[in-house]
Structures are given as C-alpha cells and as structure tokens.
Design a protein around this nucleic acid. Structure first.
Lengths: 340, 340
DNA sequence: CTGAAAGCGCTTACAG
DNA sequence: CTGAAAGCGCTTACAG
C-alpha cells in the first residue's frame, strides 16, 4: 500500500539502486533515466521513508532543542518563542526539522536528551541555557554529538561552541547608566544564580558599582528563579527598607512590569519614585506605560547563530570550537529619571 | 562502535530476538533471562535505535505540530508558547516527542506536512489553526493520519476531531458586557477573516449588537492579520471618525495595549475615553495599566485537550470523531467604564 | 520459554 | 551508466 522504491523501480524498469540514486540526484545517472524515474515517482505519489533513510545513512536532518525544564517554566519564559524563531529560520533554510524536549524536571530532560542522542533521533542539539554543573551539558560534552549552547558555559569556554551576549558588560552598562543619572542605591533582581547569565550580570552590576565607588550591599540583591514572575513579598521587603533603592535592574521586562505594579501598591511610581532598567526588550515594552528602558539582547539572533554554528558543526565534524557574541543595545525609554 | 541488540545478545548468551523481547517487556521471557539481559544492556550502555525500531514497527512516538506560518508570525503570537505548553504536558505523559514545522509560507508548510506524513516522521498531527480552504487541512483530511485541529473546521465539523472555544458566545458576551455598560458604538478589531476563530467572533459581535437593536456599522470593524501588531493608521482612522466608538473589542491583549498607546497619542485614555475588552488574558495583563478586561480562553487547555484527543486517536484508529469545547471566562478588570 | 529467519525501506560499495 | 547484493538495527510471525 505504501509506495516504496521497489514499486517505482519496477514501473520505471530500473533497479531500486537507480531509483535511490535518482533521489540523491547522483550525477552518474543519465538525464533520461532520471526524468523517467521522476515521472514514475510523481505518478505513483512516491515519498521517501525517512526512517529507512535515516537508518542506513545515520542522519536524521533533525535538530534537538533542549530547554531547562520545558513543561513548566520555559514555555512561559518570553525568551523561548523568540529564540525558537531564530532557530527555526536557519533550520528551514537548511532543510532541518526541529525536535523539542518536553521534560518537566531536570532528570526527565536529562533522560530525554540521552535517549534522543543515543537513539539517533537528532543530528545535533541546541542547549537553550547554560547552568553550572549541569548533568545534561556534561553528558553532551563527553558524547560525540554536535551541540551548541545559548549562553557561556560555566567552565572551559573554549572547549565549547556557543553563542552569548556580553552579559557582564550589558549589566555594567545598564547600572552605569543609572549611576550617571545620580542613583546610588540600585537594586538588582536577577535570575537564579545557577544560570551563568545571572552570574555574569551580577558581576557586571558589581563592576559598575565598584567603578563608582559604591559598596555592594547584599540587601539590594534579589535572586529570582527562572519563572517570569516575581514574588510580591520580595518587592515589598525591598522597598520598605530604611534606605530603599532609588533604582532597580530586573532581568526581564515582564518582571519589571509586575514589579511596577507592586510598587504602585506601595504608592510608588516609575520613574518618579523609582527608576527601572530591564532586559529583553519585548516588542510590547515600547508601547506600555511607562515605556521601559531595556537591554535588547537580540534573542532572535542568539537562536539564529546558535543553529548556524550547529549546522556548520554537523556538516564539518572537525571544525574548531567557536563562540559568537551577539551585540546588545540599551534602549533608553521613559522608565528612568535623573536624580536631582 | 554503537552497541546494538546483537552485542547485547552475544554477551548475554541469548538471541537478538530475546533481547528485543526484553526491551518490549514481553511476558513470555523468564524473569531470570530478563534480568540477565538488562544487566548486560546496562553494562554495555545499550540504547535502542529509534530509526530502526520505527522502521519496522511503523511508529515514531512523535507528534507533528503545524503552525500557520511558523518562521514569521506564529512564534510572535503569544498564543503559541502557551498552547505548546499544554501539548507538551500530554506528550510527555505519554512518552511522545514533539516535531515542529518551520515553513514560512503556506506552500512551505504544506510541503513540510506532506513530507512528514508520507515520510512517516510522525504518528499524528496537531493543526494549530483553522482556516477556510486550507490546503494543508484538506490534505490531512484525505490522508489516513490521525490529526486534531485547534479551532473549528470551516465545513463539516462532525467529520473532524477538534478542540475549540465557543468563540461566537465569547464575543457575544464581551460585546454584551460593553452594551450593558451603556456603549452603543463598539469597534471590533479581529484577526484575519480567513481564520474561523475570527469569523466566529465577528458573528458573536453582530449577534450582541442585534440583541440590543444596534445596527452593524462596517466602519467600526477592523480586520487585522495574525501578527500581534496593529497598524497605527487603522487606529487613528477609527478614532477620528465623526462618531468614534466609545468601546473597542480586540483579539489579543498585546494588540489592546498597542492600541491604548495609539489612543494616547490622540489624547484619549482607557477607560475614561474609551473602554476596551480583549482576548487571551495574558499573564501580565492583570499587572499592567490599565488592567485589561479580557476573555481567558484557556490556551493551555486547548493544547492539552488537542493532544489528548490526538493520542487517543493514534491508539484507537477507529475511535469516533470528537470535539471538545474548552470553557472561557470574561475576566473583568479596569479597562471598561460605564457610560453615563 | 527461546531461536532462526524474514523483512521494514532504504543506501552504497562492488562489479560490470 | 546501471544492477545485484549486503547491510543499517530492529521486530515478529513461525517453529520447536
């Protein structure tokens, strides 16, 4: 019932090998034969069976995409669709398909990755996060499958291929911007410190403070998890200190807006009472009130470059390790005020 | 180098058939043999090759997800990650993987779908949209692959398995709500009319008007495409009419906020000058200003149920066609005002 | 309870 | 330029 290469071969009076070569557009087949075989393929409605082809060629034309913990948080993280958009673009241009992990816990994701690698479901993997002591990443590192990381690896960065922003500089610039506006008490709301991106930004934050001879005060530092949701309590605790911050740096625009809401409960307005700088520059942030000052980290490009690097690596297994730093821009809008 | 079933068989002193049966946990194999084989599998680090297994069993344990036109718009549509989250949950519970289309145009998506179906890359498909005269849907309908649709099909709904909201009622309720607040000139900003969801909502809009004996005025109807972005011009044209609307219904929260911004340029405030009701109830909408009155259509559940139906269909090919209507709720917040 | 054999639908050296 | 044969790593009737 399914049309196979044999059916085509018989009808076109050639051998299955020849049909296979026509599919591969092998140059040793005459134009005439090719045409005849193609006509028959069309006529019978032949489509190659990928499973069979994959099995013998040991190739799948599929990229595996690994999220930190998919089912629960990653899908809610606005980073995800945009990075996927970049990945998808390159995948499509290169005739690759996309395969997603669905695991909800770290262990589940790990098991899925091992099984998709060993089970030959994918030709390469994009790890959408970088975290310290991550079992999945360690597994990939010691396997022979091509993979790229979105984010700087925790250790030995030159032994990995990855894309990243310069997160240290980004945070430093954002904080310096606030300092130049006259702010000295600047709170920092970062993602979980397991993630390298959070560590880097914290470092940049500290650098900017040091540059201006402002001592680091731990009480101004809030460490949020990956969810795009901030605890109301944390905000209130922060702002009801004896010396509350006059400015805040957050790790995502949506978190920033949520915070702005909590500030409102405390009768504080942005930017009049508190200034805010954020990261990710969501499409909608320019339209909202206040329009957010935000660091655009080119999420789309992170995905795009990650997949380009990956496909290069799949095509040329011996290519050297490489990193790409995607540029970021601090977009200044109306959520920051100069202190007088 | 790759460990196959044969290597395990040899080392465990059994035949490959037996190893295969152990993997399938066939009840005819003794406990002792199973244990011995499993020990060897563990020892050698054996993993089943999915391509080989899929080829013979004609099963992939993979669900194909088809977006309207992936690369460009769908990823920017906030609907996407949330519906994917629901799909992913069920996929994971049932040990299915997720395979995404990446095509940018209708034709590309169509070709991808045909190739993934004929090429046996997936066991079933979820169509994330319903559109009239859609070639992809027509192809699926005449193929024998199980598929479900998120959205009511254009024709012969009882010949399809799908999930949907009651979009007619949703729009009717939203509009009636505004009418009850005293609004008579109510604009309707819907998605492209190719999409059934847009048609249904337009119908509900008209019903609500008719219920209140308000004539339908075409000039209050704006037809936007799938992008989560509204043209500034359309808004301005609408609001500079001699008799501009006093209330607006939009098809997505982000579009609503963008509109609110354009209204501001015209010195109009929500809800003081214009009331707005929207759809989708984004997580952030309750935190923004104004907090949006929005119809929560349970996007997660749409994805969840779509995949449940699909997997049922895969497991029982002869199961009857089915539809599931996911309930919606109008969440009343601060973006609407009673007219006095 | 287990094994030998055939076969899933392809690709690719090896011959000619 | 094309074909016959072997093989990719599995599963599953068929025997025993």
């Amino acid at each position: 019932m399914t049309i196979t290469i044999k059916d085509v071969a018989k009808k076109a009076n050639v051998s299955p090998s020849t049909v296979s070569r026509v599919i591969a557009n092998n140059s040793r087949i005459t134009k005439e034969t090719k045409q005849r075989v193609r006509d028959v393929m069309e006529e019978l409605g032949y489509y190659p069976n990928f499973q069979a082809r994959n099995l013998v060629s040991n190739k799948t034309n599929t990229i595996g995409i690994v999220m930190a913990n998919s089912a629960t948080l990653s899908f809610q993280n606005p980073f995800f669709p945009e990075v996927l958009r970049g990945i998808s673009e390159v995948a499509h241009d290169n005739q690759y398909g996309l395969y997603l992990t669905t695991g909800g816990t770290e262990q589940e994701v790990y098991d899925e990755v091992v099984s998709m690698v060993q089970g030959k479901r994918v030709d390469g993997i994009i790890l959408l996060y970088s975290r310290k002591n991550d079992a999945t990443m360690n597994y990939l590192a010691q396997s022979s499958i091509p993979f790229t990381i979105v984010g700087r690896p925790f250790e030995n960065p030159d032994q990995f291929t990855y894309v990243d922003n310069n997160n240290v500089d980004n945070a430093r610039e954002a904080v310096s911007y606030l300092i130049n506006l006259g702010h000295k008490r600047i709170a920092f709301v970062g993602g979980g410190l397991d993630y390298i991106v959070s560590q880097d930004r914290l470092k940049g934050y500290k650098q900017a403070l040091a540059d201006a001879n402002i001592p680091f005060d731990e009480r101004y530092f809030i460490n949020e998890e990956e969810t795009a949701s901030l605890s109301r309590e944390a905000t209130i605790d922060l702002m009801t200190m004896t010396k509350p911050p006059t400015a805040i740096v957050t790790h995502d625009d949506l978190v920033a807006y949520e915070m702005i809401r909590y500030l409102e409960e405390l009768k504080m307005t942005v930017p009049e009472d508190v200034s805010i700088v954020s990261f990710n520059n969501h499409k909608i942030s320019e339209h909202l009130r206040p329009p957010l000052t935000s660091v655009d980290i080119s999420i789309y490009n992170l995905g795009y470059e990650a997949n380009r690097l990956l496909i290069d690596k799949i095509n040329q297994p011996d290519i050297e390790k490489k990193k790409i730093i995607v540029p970021s821009t601090l977009i200044k809008r109306g959520s920051c005020k100069r202190l007088t």
